[in-house]
Amino acid sequence: MEEHRVKWVLGFGLLVALLLLLFMANIGFGSVSIPFDDILNVLLGEKASRSAYTSIILMSRLPQTITAVLAGAGLAVGGLQMQTLFRNPLAGPSILGISSGAGLGVALVVLFAGNILGVTISGYGLLGHMTVVGAAFLGAFTILLLIVFFAQALRDNTILLIVGIMIGYAASAIIGVMKFYSPKEDVHAYVIWGLGSFSNVSWEHLLILIPIVLIGLVMSLLLIKPLNVLLLGENYAENLGINIRNTRLAILFCTGILTAAITAFCGPIAFLGLAVPHLTKGLFRTSDQKVLMPAVILAGAVLALFCNLIARLPGFDGALPINVVTGLIGAPIVISVIIKRRKMNANG
């Protein structure tokens, strides 16, 4: 037991250190290099040596960094919850079709409005962006309600999982039809949204995103005990006094609002939600959600910051979409986990 404790304390120490380091790096690095003193001064509310630094940090890099932290933490929590609830290592926050729902909402606005009403949303600036965010949130929330409805009717988790995946396919199919009949420019605008970005979130948006993500994270901490018991499967959990139906609804709702809000503001961020729980489980070697949940929150933020930093490395200059980076980092992780699992089963 004590051996574990030491390992866990070291693990948390490492994650917190990485978080601070990458937070500062995200603010410091970019196409304009800013001296460390100036970064500190601006963050502490004092004057920087050049006023441009202040505006770059406060208007661009700080909101982007905070967004990455929120998105990484939120999606990772969603991933852990889905993997635990469905007892499936390949489940992620987008498994239930919620991000497809967001995509459908955005497609309706970007493609449909452009096609039928002759309005190009991308030409409307901030107002247009808010419309996209609203549509994405509405789409994601509609799918979430649908999933919750099915969750109440279906007892079997596996069937619920399949229903979620099918809903996602259906949404993607509708998007496909709309893409097919839309002009190139609109499709391009949709594809750009689909690549994901932490940089389109302003302070006004953060005022909405921060509270939703915080609610989701607090809720996830409150669900630690039932999630732990659910590791044994629903029958054992029920016998141990867990109210399966309510717990499942709470978990779905928690993952749902996190995914809906983050996808609405940042686009569908791939792989983070799937990969971070695996990374964390590998680091902490435990199934205990009391350890994993806070660890996943930290690790999600760390990995999102890391991906965002790579996307902004000199030379790329923000040209590299976030999904390209998360995919390139996430895919090898998922592959290694699958191979490791196979080995474990072969040995067991």
Binding site: L222, K225, N228, L231, L232, N235, L240, I242
Partner: peptide, 28 residues
């Protein structure tokens, strides 16, 4: 029950401790 449980990273202690669920506090 009959089912074979394959829970990665769970130790015997973790598993047995879950039996205390009806008696433990809010966070378990």
């Amino acid at each position: 029950l009959t089912e074979r449980l394959q829970i990665p990273n769970m130790t015997v202690f973790d598993l047995v401790a879950l039996g205390r669920t009806p008696y433990t506090d809010f966070f378990g």
